[in-house]
Design a protein around this nucleic acid. Structure first.
Ligand SMILES: [Mn+2]
Ligand SMILES: [Mn+2]
Ligand SMILES: [Zn+2]
Ligand SMILES: [Zn+2]
Lengths: 145, 145
DNA sequence: ATATAAATGATAATTATTATCAATTATAAT
DNA sequence: ATTATAATTGATAATAATTATCATTTATAT
């Protein structure tokens, strides 16, 4: 499990300075159980760092993403969300097209396909994004009424 | 294969009017071999319909997407691209994180997982988005220099 | 030919994201 | 503890994508 401290250590090792702002962001990310948009993360971090700028959130997200510490979700049409990556587990989603409810998928079995595709295409593949779309139980009922 | 005419028939059947603008868009979509952003589609359609508005492009894309006639690609960070859906084939991508080169993937073997997840989660799943990320041959060389 | 609802396009409004840049600060070296 | 340095920050502006409004036009059924 990635705690704020471990994340900080990781960043420091990569040459990034550990500022109070970053510490607060790391804490928020480590403590979140759901996916957070940059704006949502901003709100949470503001409790600890009232004067932090939204830009700093974006910049830190970029770093965490580049280091592979968080994973991205394309849920709503416009914005993106992020969640701390769990070690060695895949993290994918089933998203309800009607209400936006999200279910997690931790096993996809795509590793072998990924390797095969790497061979076939010559790409060095380092990850994948997988999302299922559909309707949750609740919205299925509403539809059929 | 979906031609302009078949797409038009499909739309008409769904209650949409067939305007010259839509016809031009359908033609462009049917004739495209690559993925098109709304802006790129706009440019192409302007040859046949010089006075068409970009908004009309967006609106038509929305319809085609809702009817499942085109599929979406999340390639660059900001914008989306679309391509005509081929019957019964999956359409996924390997995208080079460095130069943006795209390779197609038409088989993913996710149907069984999709069914299993539908059972487990209660979702009625009607599709998925799968994208691989990595580096194409060319960019691998550049990296190692 | 006419009625009607749908579609269009000009335009403005929203949003998300990125760029600039002067002021601040974490960190390492002294 | 001071100091030097480059990284970081945040205020602000700039970009860019997408969506909303609304008066006008038009496809289609009658
Ligand atoms: Mn999740
Ligand atoms: Mn493709
Ligand atoms: Zn996976
Ligand atoms: Zn598939």
């Amino acid at each position: 499990m990635m705690t704020e401290k471990r994340l900080a250590t990781f960043l420091r090792r990569e040459g990034y300075k550990i500022t109070p702002q970053r510490r607060a962001i790391l804490k928020a990310v480590a403590g979140a159980h759901d996916h957070l948009t940059p704006a949502a993360l901003y709100e949470r971090v503001q409790q600890a760092q009232p004067h932090i700028g939204l830009v700093t959130i974006y910049r830190t997200i970029q770093i965490l993403e580049a280091l592979g510490l968080i994973c991205e979700m394309h849920a709503e049409r416009t914005s993106r969300s992020y969640l701390l990556k769990r070690a060695s587990e895949h993290h994918h989603h089933i998203i309800c097209s009607s209400c936006g409810t999200v279910a997690d998928v931790t096993h996809c079995g795509l590793d072998s396909l990924q390797q095969q595709l790497a061979k076939e295409t010559g790409f060095e593949i380092d990850g994948h994004l997988l999302e299922f779309f559909g309707y949750c139980r609740h919205c299925q009922r509403l539809k059929s009424e």
